[in-house]
Each structure stands twice: as C-alpha cells, then as structure tokens.
C-alpha cells in the first residue's frame, strides 16, 4: 500500500514538471500582460520599468530557472495582477470553490441515485421514462444558458433566491464556510444546482444501467431466494455493487468541479478558483496559471488515489499495489 502511494506520488512529480514547462513557455509565447495592465499615460520608460518589475525583461529560460528554484522551496511566484504570492491568491479562493463542488456533488448523489434506482428497478413505469428523458435534457443544455435561466426565474422573476455572490460565512469545528448559514445556503443554491444538473443526469444514467445489470445477477436472485427483505437486497447487496462506477465517476467529476467550474462561477460571480483561472488566462497572469495547474494536477492525483482506495473497500476483489497504478 505504501509503495503504491509512493509510486503514485513519484509519477505525479513527473507530470507536474512536464506540465509546468509546457504552460510556462506556452504562456510566454502568447504574450505578456504589461501593455494591458499599464496606465495609458505611462511613457516608454515607465513601460520598461513595469516589464522589469515583473521580471519579464529576462530571457525566458532564466525566468523558468528562477521559477523552478522558487518552486523547490514552495514559492510559485507572485501574481502579476495582484502582486501577492500566486499560491496565496489561489488558496484564498479555494474554500468557496470546494464548498460549491461539495454542494453540487451532494445534490447529484441525493437526487441522482434514488431516481436512477427507481428507473432501473421499474424500467417500464411512466415515471422512469420521464426521469430518463429529463436526464437527457440535463445532459444537453449548456451550463451558461441554464445558469442565466435559473437567475431569471428564481432571482429576477420570483425573487426567491439571490442572483450573485457568496453569502455570509460562519465557522463550525474550525471550518469557515457559507454552508453553515441560511444566507450562505440561499446564495449557494442556484450555482450548486447549475453545476449539479449535469452530474445528476450522469448519476441517474449510471445508477440505472448498473441496477438493470445487477438485478439479474445470481447473488441478487440468491438473496431474494434466501427471503431477505427488499430493502436489504436493494439497499445493501445491489447498491454496494452498482456504486463502484458511480464513485469513480463522481470522484473525477468532483475534481472537474473544483478545477473547472469556470462558467458557473463567472455567471454567479462566485468568488472561487474557476473565476480566478479565467481571469488569469485572460490577463496572461502566468504565475497564477502555472501554480493553479500544478495544484490541479496534484489534486487529481490525490483524488485518483482516494478513488482507488475506496474501490478496495467497496470491492474486496480489488487489491492495491498489484500493478493497478
């Protein structure tokens, strides 16, 4: 197990190195933000001073060497835009994004699994057909359009929920989150639903497919023959077996939600990392882009690891460390 985890981490270091190299030089080729950031009244010498202040006057390989030296000691450089350490700029916005992703995943599980189970157990019922049709709609509608519609309906026309931003936060067990206040929950409802819509559809389809397959398996028949109550057959024997693909997909989707919920965060002005990333890309804030992607690579490595470990718990046939990396 330890060897397995270690090997995983070693691999991730390689990925991070290659990725940082590509992004660093890639952004350099695209351009630099000085002419966008500088005050129009600045003359040529002011512009040169700004280029020097950001270290952009050095040759690119020297800039990269400088960056690697810093990175080795945990310093990923300073944001061109904010002047603060890139890592701080990103981690400041991380709690908002993680709570949004958690809320969306929770919605996906709470809504998606029961609906999927129902559709799988009673495939011919009218309601099941309705659920499946709705899941196709959930798949195909573009996020930005759904987001604007949610705002129009629930915030502008009905006036039930706020349209923008994050609510007040409160601390609970040392964690500060807007999930602990009513104002916070009201603010998170629409963006979380917007993000969750696709995931709900995904979970419905996965659960249904799994259920349809597992229901005819011998162990279910055997459990029924043994006279176990329906609740136990479905709730334990069936659910445990169909959860494996759902857990894998949700794990990866959670990573995606944290890393790239750019559209939703922009529409709802959610002060998270996705909005930061798109801003950084638009303004070629290279230190933030590079640091962000490094963090994301590490996050995916960890999520995959957790998923693999969860596998082994859900399915005892899976053993870690035997070439499953």
């Amino acid at each position: 197990m330890t060897a397995f985890i270690l090997r995983r981490l070693m691999q991730s270091v390689g990925v991070v190195l290659v990725m940082s190299l590509i992004v660093f030089f890639g952004v350099h080729v695209v351009g630099d933000p000085v002419y966008l950031l500088i005050n129009p009244q600045a003359d040529q010498k002011d512009i040169e001073a700004a280029i020097r202040a950001l270290g952009l006057d050095r040759p690119i390989w020297e800039q990269y060497w400088h960056f690697m030296k810093g990175a080795a000691s945990g310093d990923l450089g300073r944001s061109f835009i904010f002047g603060e350490p890139a890592l701080k700029v990103i981690t400041q916005r991380m709690p908002a994004t993680i709570e949004l992703a958690l809320a969306a995943i929770a919605m996906a599980v709470v809504i998606g699994i029961p609906l999927g189970l129902y559709a799988g157990l009673k495939p011919d019922a009218r309601l099941s057909k309705g659920i499946m049709a709705a899941s196709i709609v959930g798949f195909s509608l573009p996020t930005f359009w759904v987001g604007l519609m949610l705002i129009m309906v629930f915030a502008v026309i009905l006036g039930w929920l706020p349209s923008t931003g994050r609510g007040t936060t409160a601390s609970f067990l040392g964690v500060s989150s807007s999930l602990f206040t009513r104002d916070g929950l009201a603010h998170i409802a629409l963006p979380a639903l917007n993000l969750a819509l696709l995931k709900i559809s995904l979970v419905i389809r996965l659960t249904r497919a799994g259920t349809r397959e597992a229901i005819h398996q011998d162990y279910i028949k055997f459990a029924r023959a043994k006279g176990l109550p329906d609740r136990r057959v479905i709730g334990v024997h069936l659910l445990k077996n169909i959860l494996i693909p759902v857990v894998t997909v949700l794990g990866l989707e959670f990573g995606n939600l944290v890393a790239f919920s750019v559209v939703t965060e922009t529409i709802f002005s959610w002060p998270g990392m996705g909005k930061l990333l798109i801003q950084a890309i638009q303004s070629l804030d290279r230190p933030v882009i590079v640091a962000y992607l490094i963090l994301i690579v590490l996050m995916f490595v960890i999520i995959n690891l957790v998923v693999d470990i969860l596998y082994s718990i859900l399915d005892p046939r899976v053993r870690l460390g035997e070439g499953s990396a």
Binding site: N39, A50, F80, I81
Partner: peptide
C-alpha cells in the same frame, strides 16, 4: 511599490 504592474511614477 514592489511588483507594481503599473506604477504611479508616471
């Protein structure tokens, strides 16, 4: 001001 992307020196 250090790291300023557009200084008030102007």
């Amino acid at each position: 001001v250090p790291n300023s992307p557009s200084s008030f020196a102007t």
